Amino acid sequence: MACVEFRNVRKEFTDEKKGTFTAVADSNLIIQDKEFLVFVGPSGCGKTTSLRMIAGLERQTSGDILIGDRIVNHLHPKDRDIAMVFQDYALYPHMTIRENLSFGLRNLKKPKDYIEKKVKEAAVILGLEDMLNRKPRELSGGQRQRVAVGRAIVRDPQVFLFDEPLSNLDAKLRVQMRVELSELHKRLEATIVYVTHDQVEAMTLGERIVVMNQGMIQQIATPKELYANPQNMFVAGFIGSPAMNFIDAVVEGNKVIVEGTFLKVPNHVAAVLQGYEHRPIVVGIRPEHIYGDDYAPSIDREHTLQARIQVVEHLGSENLVYFRMGSRRITAKVHPETKAYAGLEKTFVLDMSKVHYFDPLTEQRIL
C-alpha cells in the first residue's frame, strides 16, 4: 500500500457559456499509508473531481499528485496501481461473477493459477463463494456491489478509490455495507479514498474526513474532531444529523442575548468574546444539546428558552421538535416521553457547555 499526496493541486474547467471555473482550488493533502480517508461535501464541491484526479481520469490544471514516492501527473490510469469502485457497479452482464472478478487479471496476462487463487481469496473475503457461477442479474444490489469491490481486491493495488459506491442501495443495505467496508479495510490494511455526499457515511467510515465546499477544503479531521470542533459554520452545519442550529445573538458582558433572553456563557468563553462586546455573533447548538425542561439532564437549568412548538416528529427512541427563534427554525432532539405537541408553549434547556460561537461576517468559529 502507499500514501497519496496533493501538492497545490488545482483543477479548472472551461465552459462555453460560463467560461473558466475552478472545481478544485489549490488543495494540499496527505493521505497516510493504510488510512481510510473520506471526501464529503455537497454536489459540485470538488470531491469526485479530486478522486478522479488521483485515478488519472482527470488531469489537474496545476500542482502535483504523488502515489507512494512517484509523481503520477502524466501516468495513464492503468499505470498508477490503483483500483476504482464506481457507483453503478460496472459489471459485465454476460459474464459470470468468476469471470467478472478475473477480468482485469486476465487482461494483464496473469497466470491462470494466480488468477484462480486471487479470485478465491476475494470470494472468501466477500462471502461470494457460492455465487461465482451466477450472472450479475441473479444477484441483489448489495451482492453486485461486493463483486465490484472484489474486482478491485484481486488486483492488490496500492490505493483503493471508492466513488459513492453505496448510493444505489436502500437504507438497510447501506448500513450493512458500511460495516462490511470497515471490516474489509481492517482485514486488507489498505489505503482507501472514499467519496460520498452522505455525512453519516463519512462519519461512520472515515478515520479522517476531508470536508469540501465550492472546490475548497474546509477542514480535515477525525469524525470526533469535526463534530466537537468545527472550524466554520459550513462544517458545523454539514456534520451532524439533524444539522446544528444557528441562532442570532448579541454579546453583553458574560452573556449572550438571544431573542430577549440572556444566556450566561462559561468564563473562558466570556474572555474570548470580549472583542465582540455589543456586537452580533451567531450561536451554534446541536439538536441533541437542547432538552425539554421535563426530561433535561442534570445541567444548569438557568439556561432556558421559551418557544411555541410548530411540529413534532415521533421517531420512537427520540422526538424531533421544531420551533422558531426570530427568522431561524430550530430543531431539538428530545426524550421520547417529553411533553410536546404543535402549539404548545414549551421551556427548553440549553447545555451551554456545548455551544459554539461564530463570527457572522467570516463564518469562522470564534473559539
Rank of each mutant, 00 (worst) to 15 (best):
P111Q: 04
L173R: 04
K34W: 01
Q32D: 13
L361G: 00
V159K: 02
G316I: 01
A296H: 05
K17P: 00
G240I: 02
I281Y: 10
V258C: 12
G326Q: 11
R10F: 01
L173G: 02
A332R: 03
I82H: 11
A122Y: 04
T338R: 06
G326W: 12
C45A: 15
R328G: 11
G142W: 02
Y322A: 12
S241V: 08
K172F: 00
K255W: 02
E363L: 14
H74W: 05
H314F: 15
D163W: 06
D156E: 15
V159P: 04
P360W: 12
T96I: 02
K333M: 13
E58Y: 10
G206T: 06
D294G: 10
Y114W: 08
I220W: 01
V40M: 09
L51A: 13
D81E: 14
K224G: 06
E337M: 11
G316L: 00
V321Y: 03
L367T: 09
R187H: 12
R146F: 10
D294R: 08
Q158I: 00
I257H: 04
H335G: 07
I257Y: 02
R329T: 14
K34H: 12
T338S: 14
D170F: 09
T96A: 09
S50D: 10
A90F: 01
G237D: 13
I209L: 05
S353A: 12
R137F: 10
V24M: 13
